[in-house]
Design a protein around this nucleic acid. Sequence first.
RNA 1: GCGCCCGUAGCUCAGCCGGAUAGAGCACUUGAUUCCUAAUCAAGGGGUCGCAGGUUCGAGUCCUGCCGGGUGCGCCA
Length: 584
Amino acid sequence: MNVFSHLSEVIHREIEELCGAGALPAGLDLSAVQVEPPREAEHGDAACNAALVLAKQARRKPREIAEHLAERLQERTEIRSVDVAGPGFVNLRLTDDFWWARLAELLATGPGYGADDLGQGQRINVEYVSTNPTGPLHVGHARGAVVGDALANLLSHMGFAVTREYYVNDAGAQVDTLARSVHARYREACGETIGAIPEGLYPGDYLVPVGEALAARDGRRWLEEPESVWLPEVRNFAIDAMMGLIRDDLDALGVRHDVFSSERALVAEGRVDDAYASLESSELIYRGVLEPPKGQRDDDWEPREQDLFRATRFGDDTDRPLRKSDGTWTYFATDIAYHRDKIERGFADLIDVWGADHGGYVKRMKAAVAAISNDSATLDVKICQMVKLLDDGEPVAMSKRAGRFVTLRDVVGEVGRDVVRFIMLTRRNDAPLEFDLRRVLEQSRDNPVFYVQYAHARACSALRRGAELVPETELTPAALAGADLTCLDDPAELDLIRRLCQWPRVLAGAALAHEPHRIAYHLQELAGAFHLLWTRGKDDARLRFVDAERPAETRARLALISGVRIVIAEGLALFGVEPVQEMR
RNA sequence: GCGCCCGUAGCUCAGCCGGAUAGAGCACUUGAUUCCUAAUCAAGGGGUCGCAGGUUCGAGUCCUGCCGGGUGCGCCA
């Protein structure tokens, strides 16, 4: 049960009955009525703003509405007390019995607690990573990869039918550059002396084995041919090699996709022409000349008539070109076709996870989605800000131009997949992220990965200990659900139960807002409440989790611990992180 | 010049479609270990929520204008 949804339903019903009884006018709009955990614990277990939001439309004083509502809520058995506070908040305090029943419910559900059917099978497409197939992934890419993957996990957990997608930019000039770079390495592999890699080609060493593999497959046949002959062949070979590299990188991170969509295929199948024709038939394309861009050196600028998409009709700042001067499509044009393709495949909800450098494209892409779907599809773009890589507080130099950048593989090798994944989710996507290679391995309070993992390990440890000292009890969650929990009456214990019971609400909020980082914060708070209780047991023997002299209390406490373990494990699973059983 | 993101404690950041006395960690000061892992916990100080207006019963949150930082700006992707 989502406690807050439950209370919200109860309150909605009570208000409607108040309307029916004439205490309030009929036909009130209750959409703004909310029940949420109050910031201050003294305000109770749940607070409702109904009286404040309804006062105006009901033309009553907030406190008067609150008093009416409080009077009715008082009658309910699960509610211990109701207070009208401040300007008209209705603060609810639930009985201990209610909370114990929720803990039992959590245990009876076991893994999957908090899962819901919010999405009701609604299809949603999450596109992430989508880096150009020109080299290995670096740490910056890891952020988008993890955010997209965790978001997809979360949405799937909450009842959405999620498709995880990677858009392969295998058309355009950059893959030609890739092909030329590989050809240089190929000549090298064939025994030619190539010297320094020419300016404008990719210099990275990762292309050396690709050149060698090409030589091994095709021998010397591309040495004497003109570029126009070898380029398409080498390009295909190189793209395959790069995608293999990228997939391996993603594997190392535990990130997977259901669909890889090829830009080249999209163009070849005429899908861009289709999208163009569709926009044209809606009279959203015209021949026009754009203003020169300001604030940057524009030596080469000359006014030119182009095919322009009326993006300004949909909130963009300027209309956008669809064709380059050589007649080929712009990146934006193929991207429109790609998003149109997603919509035609039956997705009304699209999420794109992009890097910070694409921030300027959000408006035009949203405009395009609105245009091609007649406003029936939504696009949410999650921009992931930069990752600042540090080593014990000192910035780690990264230079893509010199072909020297910290690869994802290096970082995963250094600190492990789980650490990378968790850290990438500890910030809002639009806030920059510091990633300190040294600090994320520290075993201390300020390392969130450790702190949460340690709580899980401690819970496991106590359960192991319980199995030793009270061998006659079964300690599976299902068995513990039947325990007598009434001794869990210490404020710290009840506080922990309440936090566990917020899990469904946290998941729902994170899923609807597309904000997986909220889970990381909740896990940290939960771990904190658990660590606190653990230490309390040192001062106060009555609160110790495992005590062979008192098997009934031990059973109840192990039930609580089992709940903690389940929720932390659930959260980590959504993040794709393996919970640890013990710290070493 | 324009767009987008950000501006909250000394530092790094939360703050959930506006809600009550603005929170956490780090750092600093002090304390807790014969006992389930002290790899932890507790207590304390620390704020004009960038600035100024506005909307509202109520603004860190919404609107407008400034200031500061980041990022991007026809045919590159």
